[in-house]
Design a protein around this nucleic acid. Structure first.
Length: 530
RNA sequence: GCCCACGUAGCUCAGUCGGCAGAGCGCAUCCUUGGUAAGGAUGAGGUCAUCGGUUCGAUUCCGAUCGUGGGCUCCA
């Protein structure tokens, strides 16, 4: 039998409709394990499931001429099913284990009524319209090439957005007492053996041998950060040290998991390592949470927090874990936002707080994470001299806020559906020349505006003004500036925003005042002019 | 990595049951010189992803490879 493909979906949908229309009752029957095994003797997968069930009675549901093994409960008859649709198919491993056979899974979805189903289909449609891969290509932000799968190329316009993100990041981090560092991308094997990555993370690492020296391209920034801290001596008076790093890391992800900017093989982390005394855990974590809040709010992103505690397989003493976990929990309760606890979901080297943001269409994404690390300071024998003149082990946290900058870029593109806030828009304004005679003047206006720091394009093509407005509008440039004879005579601009409103006769001073203020405050509203 | 699908112009996509490759948009040139979502004409642009096989002949059929998409698995 050929595998089921999308061409079969209409047939399946039609068959489901017939079954629903027939209002077939679901009959529940209890069977013993032996009876059930006998009933399904020709079905190896059912047999395996039944064998794993506890002894006792097993429930079977019959509907028409089909009987299924199911714990239930079921609705009384098939007529209760109101809105179903077959969505897609894929390969799926039996019992979710890659070592097992791969079966074809058919995905369907069901709702209480047709309205909810169509709302869901609209949501999918909306998500598709916002797809950052589509917008990224259309807006000339980034691309992928066969020569480096999973490693994005950022174009000039994409870099404008990128730099806006990083300028803002650096500003907030300076204000929060961070310094910025940079460590190499390629480091010797000995370092990775010491950090434990060689043992635990090697299959994801790109390696190379040059002049008999084995090196690896870093999949994480921490080991390099350890070397920086380990230089010289540190006094308790120097702590905490907050060292940020926009680090470029490479991870060999399986080819099948690559997905636009969301899952890549080369990306930048907005990393930071904070080295501190145990007493500083709580205030430092609190500081990170406040920074996270501040930064996400700037993008209009709400978020929730999850605390993950000690897993079964882990290192460190009970007392260390207690202190660390209480430090995180204490900071969380002082911060005051409710949080969820994931028991046993922490990293093997320490507990962590994950931050999940919610975008404009309600999807959640884990971006930020704050992890306490009781492993690396040990492995790298880090120390500081305490007030008692003795050497102590610092506590360390790793934290990211954007997470992967590439991924965050993608999330923001979809969050804003390409309509970036003015401060991060790839092109902030475009000057349209009313006709050919005004092309030179329009070019002047453009360079004047560029001198004020704006990112400005020029459209002086011999096209109708309607055409140029349409193109600018479709390319999502927030400020569309038209200069004609009147504007030239009066030194004014006509300003069109993406909502289609046009203000005529705006003086350049008034324009720059409004726009530069809006940018400096990093406002996210599209209503730039009152 | 695994399953399924896909890969034709810069973009979106037709098409060829095996016989000289198509449209719209974009681009170039010319005409038009306009007041806020598409003015007109002409033209250039293709190794039909790559490699191999079958065939008189392959963009089309077959195989492999690479890449992309949807999933699975993975995700310190």
């Amino acid at each position: 039998m050929p595998p089921i493909s999308e061409e079969d979906f209409p047939k399946i949908d039609a068959a489901m409709k017939r079954i629903v229309d027939a209002k077939l009752p679901f009959a529940r029957r209890l069977a013993s394990k032996d009876e059930a095994l006998e009933f399904y003797r020709n079905e190896p997968y059912k047999t395996e499931l039944i064998q794993d069930l506890a002894d006792g009675t097993i429930s079977l549901y019959t509907q028409g001429d089909f009987t299924d093994l199911c714990r239930g409960p079921h609705v009384p008859h098939t007529g209760f099913v109101k809105a179903v649709k077959i969505m897609k198919t894929s390969g799926a491993y039996w019992r979710a284990d890659a070592k097992n056979a791969q079966l074809t899974r058919i995905y369907g979805t069901a709702f209480f009524d047709k309205k909810e189903l169509s709302a869901y289909l609209n949501f999918l449609e909306e998500a598709k319209k916002r797809d950052h891969r589509k917008l990224g290509a259309a807006m000339d932000l980034f691309s992928f090439h066969d020569e480096a799968p999973g490693m994005p190329f950022f174009h000039a316009k994409g870099m404008a957005v990128w730099n806006a993100l990083l300028d803002y990041w650096r500003l907030e981090h300076r204000r929060a007492g961070y310094v910025e560092t940079k460590t190499p991308v390629m480091l010797n094997r000995t370092l990775w053996e010491r950090s434990g990555h060689w043992e635990n993370y090697r299959e994801n690492m790109y390696t190379s041998v040059i002049e008999d020296v084995q090196t690896a391209i870093k999949p994480m920034n921490c080991p390099g950060g350890m070397l920086l801290y380990a230089m010289g001596h540190h006094s308790y008076k120097d702590l905490p040290i907050r060292a940020g790093e926009i680090g470029l890391v490479h991870r060999h992800e399986l080819s099948g998991v690559l997905n636009g900017l969301f899952r890549v093989r080369a990306f930048h982390q907005d990393d930071a390592h904070i080295f501190m005394t145990p007493e500083q855990i709580r205030p430092e974590i609190l500081g990170v949470l406040r920074l996270v809040d501040r930064i996400y709010s700037t993008f209009g992103l709400t978020f929730h927090l999850e605390l993950s505690t000690r897993p079964k397989k882990s290192i460190g003493s009970e007392a260390q874990w207690k202190d660390a976990t209480e430090g995180l929990a204490g900071a969380l309760s002082e911060y005051g936002k409710p949080y969820k606890i994931n028991e046993g979901d922490g990293a093997f080297y320490g507990p962590k707080i994950d931050i999940h943001i919610k975008d404009a269409i309600g999807r959640t994404w884990q971006c930020g994470t704050v992890q306490l690390d009781m492993n690396l300071p040990e492995r790298f024998d880090l120390g500081y001299i305490g007030a008692d003149n003795a050497r102590h082990r610092p506590v360390m946290i790793h934290r990211v806020i954007y997470g992967s900058i590439e991924r965050f870029f993608g999330i923001l593109t979809e969050h804003f559906a390409g309509r970036f806030p003015l401060w991060m828009a790839p092109v902030q304004a475009i000057v349209l020349a009313m006709n050919d005679e005004l092309a030179a003047y329009a070019a002047e206006v453009r360079s004047d505006l560029e001198e004020s720091g704006l990112r400005v394009d020029l459209d002086a093509r011999s096209e109708s003004i309607q055409k140029k407005v349409r193109d600018a509008q479709l390319s999502l440039v927030p400020l569309i500036l038209t200069v004609g004879a009147k504007e030239k005579e009066n030194g004014t601009l006509s300003v069109r925003t993406l909502d289609g409103k046009v203000r005529y006769g705006v003086s350049r001073e008034a324009f720059l005042n409004t726009v530069l203020g809006h940018i400096a405050r990093r406002e996210i509203g599209q209503d730039i002019f009152p």
